[in-house]
């Protein structure tokens, strides 16, 4: 009998351990239901913010806060992969693949590449301009755009 209670206690504890995700990008759209094309929650989340998940549904997570348990965030706002993380069939990955994925392709490498190719400077400048001055459409802008075009759930 005692063993049963121990097992039950462990199961309950496991079920109530909350998952925490870290927001990885700006402009994430927090929704009132687990779908992008619907009503947005009037809350914001920021890169680096820790969020406690109380429920998972498909690619969506219901957050403890903000939104008092009533708001959903899609995994595209927090998912990332570490260099070398396995995808597809792990059986085909070698340790070498995993180690190699951690090398190069850094900001320093990009800088070195740019200094080697001064002819690309104007275009790199244009790309920086787009990155700095053309952030993704904000949630409120998107809501208005969808409504005006009868898109999403408002066809």
């Amino acid at each position: 009998m005692a063993a049963k209670w121990i097992v039950l206690s462990v199961l309950v504890a496991a079920a109530t351990v909350s998952e925490v995700v870290v927001v990885k990008r700006e402009g994430a759209r927090v929704m009132k239901a687990p779908r992008f094309f619907g009503d947005a929650c009037p809350v914001d989340v920021s890169p680096g913010q820790n969020l406690t998940v109380v429920e998972r549904r498909g690619g969506w997570a219901r957050l403890a806060s903000p939104g008092n348990g009533q708001c959903w965030l899609h995994q595209s706002a927090w998912s990332d992969r570490e260099p070398g993380e396995l995808v597809g069939n792990p059986a085909t990955a070698s340790q070498r693949d995993v180690e190699l994925a951690g090398r190069g392709f850094t900001e320093e490498e990009e800088e070195r590449y740019r200094s080697d190719h001064p002819d690309l400077a104007p275009v790199f400048g244009a790309l920086e301009d787009y990155l700095a001055r053309a952030p993704e459409t904000t949630s409120s802008e998107l809501t208005a755009f969808l409504a005006a075009g009868r898109l999403g759930g408002d066809k």
């Binding site: 990332d80 992969r81 070398g84 693949d97 994925a101 900001e107 275009v123 790199f124 790309l127």
Partner: peptide, 25 residues
């Protein structure tokens, strides 16, 4: 060769930016 281990999103971003500079040029 199938995908096995991947690049991080930052690595993809760095590479993609340089590819984009080449393509636009």
């Amino acid at each position: 060769l199938g995908r096995s281990a991947t690049f991080s999103m930052e690595q993809e971003f760095r590479l993609g930016k340089s590819i984009a500079a080449n393509v636009l040029t």
